[in-house]
Amino acid sequence: MSNIRITKLFSFETGHALHGYDGKCKNIHGHSYQLSVTVIGKPISDSNDPKYGMVIDFGDLKKIVKDEVVDVLDHATLFNKNTPHLELAKELQSRGMKVILTDYQPTSEMMVIDFAEKIKKRLPKEMQLHSLRLQETNTCFAEWFASDN
């Protein structure tokens, strides 16, 4: 049976600030992110399986990505926990704001690497994560491909 790639699209709103950056993005700002998740595998060939003919049920893929990425990041603000933004993050948290402290500079490039690791761990063994595309603006995106890693 042939390998097939399937893709599901997600969107979420997240803020961040890039400490030490030499441009506007050093300021707290947000994006309407668009995430494309592509997996590759063989469609299920067992006609008795309720998922017969599918690589993965889109609903199952949705649950994985929402649990690991979307529901965690939607309407949150990301800061690198190793920057002076830590004091600001604690203040925002004390005021009931959703703040996430990352181990990395929260750029699209680093975020997509983080997402790939989280999603790969949750996929059924019969398939692989093929690629991710994280669109930050209408004209800018970062991509991760398994073949490059």
Rank of each mutant, 00 (worst) to 15 (best):
G15D: 11
H16Y: 08
L18G: 07
H19Q: 12
Y21Q: 11
Y21F: 15
Y21P: 05
G23T: 14
K24C: 04
K24N: 15
C25W: 04
C25A: 05
C25Y: 03
C25L: 00
I28Q: 13
H29N: 03
H29M: 10
H31W: 09
S32T: 15
Y33Q: 09
Q34H: 10
Q34F: 07
L35Q: 04
V39K: 01
V39E: 01
V39T: 00
I40P: 04
I40F: 08
I40C: 12
G41R: 10
K42L: 08
P43N: 07
I44A: 05
D46S: 03
S47A: 09
D49M: 06
P50Q: 02
P50A: 03
P50H: 02
K51R: 13
Y52T: 12
G53K: 02
G53F: 03
G53L: 03
M54Q: 06
M54D: 04
V55G: 00
D57W: 12
G59E: 10
G59W: 08
D60P: 04
L61G: 00
K62I: 02
K63V: 09
K63E: 06
I64N: 00
I64H: 11
V65I: 08
D67F: 02
D67I: 06
D67H: 09
D71P: 09
V72S: 02
V72P: 00
L73H: 11
L73G: 06
D74K: 15
H75A: 11
A76C: 07
A76D: 03
A76W: 01
T77P: 09
L78N: 07
F79W: 11
F79V: 01
N80I: 05
K81L: 13
N82K: 14
T83F: 15
H85K: 11
L86S: 01
L86Q: 01
L86W: 14
L86V: 07
E87A: 09
E87I: 11
L88E: 13
A89E: 01
K90R: 14
E91K: 13
E91V: 08
L92F: 12
Q93H: 06
Q93T: 10
R95S: 14
R95W: 06
M97N: 12
K98S: 07
I100S: 12
I100F: 09
I100Y: 07
T102L: 15
D103S: 14
D103Q: 15
D103V: 12
Y104F: 15
Y104T: 13
Y104D: 11
Q105A: 08
Q105M: 05
Q105K: 04
Q105D: 05
P106K: 03
P106R: 08
P106D: 05
P106W: 00
P106A: 13
P106N: 07
T107V: 10
E109H: 05
E109S: 08
E109T: 09
M110L: 15
M111K: 11
I113V: 12
D114I: 00
D114A: 02
F115V: 04
A116W: 00
A116Y: 05
A116T: 03
E117M: 04
E117H: 10
K118Y: 02
I119N: 02
K120Y: 00
K121D: 00
K121M: 03
L123V: 08
K125E: 13
K125A: 12
E126V: 13
E126D: 15
M127L: 12
M127N: 02
Q128E: 14
H130K: 06
L132E: 14
L132K: 07
R133Y: 05
L134W: 02
E136A: 11
E136V: 11
T137L: 02
T139A: 08
